[in-house]
Amino acid sequence: MPTALDLLGVLLILANLRLLGSSRLAACIRAVALQAVILGAAALLANLPDLDARVVIIAVASTGLKAGALPWLLRRAIRESGAVREIEPFIGFTASLLVGVGLLGLCFLIGSPLSAHVAAGSGLLITVSLFTTATGLLVIVSRRKAVTQVLGYLAMENGIYAFGMAFAIQEPLLVEMGVLLDVFVAVFVMGITIYNISREFDHIDTDRLSALKD
């Protein structure tokens, strides 16, 4: 199984780089949805010999939500706002990719010593999870569009989910479902807010939301 898991890890890295390097919002949404699908597959694979209902329920619910419902919601939000691409981010796309590769190296440095603790499966997963969280943070601080910032938030969540998987942290089903519900409602409320922002301002550039300051 480790090789298959490693392969999924590499795919996740590629999805992250895609998120960092693409200016088209639709492509970014696909990249984050892809992350969720990869993570769902990895969750099933990592527990393969003795799959229990709990793991399956969480993996299916989480994938369905993060790869199905939420991307649909965000696609609607960008359709309403008419935004197609991220224009002139604070850190350019090429620069973002370079920073991303640098972060990946850093995550390897931090992650490799930790992989000794990893319960089972792939040691790569821990590095990748840290990298995914870092990518999410980078996207949030370096992009202007509200939609892209929400994508960054989702990528962060995906990274944290992957971390839990890497260490085989079994939280109770109720708590996992609570977390998922929170993520869903969070993106839902953010989506509505983006819709309102585009209606009120005719744009969704968060750096131009600057009426409030001291």
């Binding site: 938030y153 971390f163 968060t206 009426a211």
Partner: peptide, 27 residues
């Protein structure tokens, strides 16, 4: 609206870090 957006995003990202903290605690 601007205040709501900042509140949502900043607090959600902050709380996402706390989730990572919970996982560290579990480790």
């Amino acid at each position: 609206l601007e205040a709501t957006w900042k509140y949502l995003l900043i607090c959600s990202v902050g709380i996402a870090l706390a989730l990572q903290g919970n996982f560290f605690l579990a480790v």
